[in-house]
Design a protein around this nucleic acid. Structure first.
Length: 354
DNA sequence: CAAGCGTGGTG
DNA sequence: TCACCAAGCTT
């Protein structure tokens, strides 16, 4: 077709189809002179790393209600922020979020830098997020490259070489399309297209504004692009967690080390997770093995957890961890795998199994 | 630079 | 059921 540039077609589509997202300033409001809040753009982009809009929405609302600006977040206790992040995954993001907020508050006077390289130097902000903040918050003509853009470019230009090898080629295509006009809306338009129309499986080509320009659709290869190198199978690991409740209702918990899996999060005392891990209980007690196990899948392994429960008197102290009282302990502060163990223990007790 | 790092939705 | 996938970053 000869009906103008791809960027203009996408912007026109975005004007009528942009999703209403809590961190977004709609095209109508933006043309009326409203600007996005860089704090909210940054927070949303960190939450959206490898995470769907549906999963992020409630977390974004809770975070902005508790901490409406970067100074408020910078002043928050670590445990509060980690607890609010619990369940969202990739917990290094929460640790880096707090680090970054404190740098912005103390060294940047509470203002996010607009410059791409200055953004890139901040913790938790990589090439994608730096470009996204520059484009969306400051309307600068940066090219954002995420999974959506990679997929849209691979299909538009029918690129069959597999990821990650194809990244530079796809980035060149994306850069060539990035407009000087409304780059922030354009960046969101490409990603919205990838999230709602040009989806990984079963793309809705019949509804696509770039239908007539897409080479993969013409060739019939859209659904199989982008190609990816196959991933290694996940091994299965096993472990034990110990859920100890004091007779006043307090639970024994540990704060996990800052680095590594579930870093900085609350968790139950337990064994290492490996082939055949065993570990002594944190205190001598009448431990009960729950009749069901916890199954959970992480990025790179499956986990099967045996859950053991016991009750002790307040007079006795375990070798590890600390007690949180009924009032202090919120199950929602636990990462999902630990929450599953808690829920299993609760449902087992409710069923009357001692 | 390849591996480590969570979780919920989906087909 | 289960592998794949998501607005990636760090080491």
């Amino acid at each position: 077709m000869r009906d103008g540039k791809i960027s203009e077609t996408l912007l026109a589509w975005y004007d009528t189809h942009a999703r209403d997202l809590p961190w977004r300033v709609s095209p109508a409001r933006r043309s009326a002179g409203q600007h996005p809040d860089p704090y909210r753009v940054w927070l949303s982009e960190i939450m959206l790393q490898q995470t769907t809009v549906a999963a992020v929405r409630d977390y974004f609302h809770r975070f902005t209600a508790l901490w409406p600006d970067v100074q408020a977040l910078a002043a928050a206790p670590d445990g509060d922020v980690m607890g609010e992040w619990a369940g969202l995954g990739y917990y290094a993001r929460a640790r880096n979020l707090l680090k970054c907020a404190r740098i912005i508050a103390s060294e940047f006077g509470g203002q996010f830098p607009t410059n791409h390289d200055a953004l890139l130097a901040l913790p938790g902000i990589g090439p994608y997020t730096a470009a996204a903040i520059s484009a969306i918050a400051f309307d600068l003509p940066e090219t954002v490259m995420d999974g959506n853009v990679e997929r849209v470019m691979a299909r538009l230009f029918d690129v069959h070489s597999p990821l990650p090898t194809a990244k530079p080629e796809l980035k060149a295509h994306a850069a060539a399309l990035t407009p000087q006009n409304r780059p922030g809306d354009y960046a969101q338009a490409v990603m919205d297209l990838g999230a709602t129309i040009c989806t990984p499986r079963a793309p809705s080509c019949n509804r696509c504004p770039l239908h007539s320009r897409c080479r993969a659709r013409q060739t019939g290869t859209a659904a199989e692009l982008p190609k990816k190198t196959p991933k290694a199978p996940k091994p299965t690991r096993r472990g034990i967690v110990y859920l100890l409740q004091r007779d006043d209702g307090a639970w024994l918990l540990e704060r996990r080390p800052d680095s590594g899996l579930l870093g900085g999060m609350l968790g139950w005392p337990g064994s290492q997770w490996g082939e055949t891990a065993q570990k002594a209980a944190p205190i001598k007690a009448d431990w009960q093995v729950l009749p069901a196990e916890v199954r959970h899948t992480f990025t790179h392994f499956h986990l099967i957890l045996t859950v053991k429960t016991a009750t002790v008197s307040a007079a006795r102290n375990p070798q590890t961890g600390f007690f949180l009282t009924r009032e202090e302990f919120r199950p929602s502060d636990l990462p999902t795998v630990m929450r599953k163990a808690y829920d299993l223990a609760q449902s087992t007790m409710a069923a009357g199994v001692e």
